[in-house]
Simulated assay, not measured.
Amino acid sequence: MKILKFFTVLGILLEITSCIPPNEQVKTIPLDGEWLSKYPAKFEFTIEDYQTPKNIIFVIRNNNSYPYSNIRLFTSIYSDKAKNQSKTDTLNYIMAKPNGEWLGTGFGNTKEMLFLYKSAYQFPKNGKYIIEVKHAMRKNPLIGLDDIGIKIETLNP
């Protein structure tokens, strides 16, 4: 069973990375069905064209073990040289319809959802940045999440 799950996740990651346009950066972290809030997901990336606005999108993959219809996140963006200048955002995303049907795409037990975090965001300067994400749900560890990721889309001028 674990081998099947491993190859399924590997296949999904290969499919995503092979289809990434050159104006996007996508990074994912496997959660293996369990996420402790004291261990934030950290995504490090480099911005080389800070003048061009970017969309920052969360990629969340869950399975049928996820017990809620939403997810709450604490997030912050900061330069690798200035963590003390970050501010925390509290976000709430809906993951299921009122009847319990999962939103998003996918087949079988796993669904992938994209949630817009920042629209047309302009970074203050070029350099390395970190986006830190913690779940803010009451249940800890949070079960039913397979992966969390970040997608940075460069907008066309």
Rank of each mutant, 00 (worst) to 15 (best):
G104M: 07
I16M: 15
P53D: 01
G108H: 02
S119M: 07
E34Q: 10
G127M: 02
D32K: 15
I47T: 06
I16H: 13
S18I: 06
Q51I: 04
P30L: 14
V26T: 13
G11Y: 14
S69G: 11
A82Y: 09
P40E: 03
L103W: 07
Q85G: 08
M95F: 12
L73Y: 06
K128M: 03
M1S: 15
Y93T: 09
Y78C: 02
Y78F: 09
E112Q: 12
A41C: 05
H135N: 12
E24N: 13
F58G: 02
G11T: 14
M113A: 12
G11N: 15
Y117I: 06
Y66L: 00
Q85A: 13
N126H: 00
T8H: 12
P40I: 03
W35N: 06
M95A: 06
N64G: 09
K38C: 04
W102M: 09
I57A: 00
R61I: 02
K54N: 07
K97T: 15
S37H: 00
S86K: 06
S79E: 10
I77Y: 01
I56Y: 00
N23C: 08
K81N: 14
S65Y: 05
G104A: 02
T90G: 08
F45I: 12
M95G: 07
Y50P: 01
S76Y: 05
P22R: 09
I60A: 01
K42Y: 06
S76Q: 13
L73K: 06
L116C: 05
F115K: 14
Y78I: 03
K2D: 15
T110R: 11
I3Y: 12
N63E: 11
F58N: 03
P53K: 01
A41K: 08
F123V: 01
V9C: 12
P22W: 08
N55T: 11
N23R: 13
Y117F: 05
K97E: 15
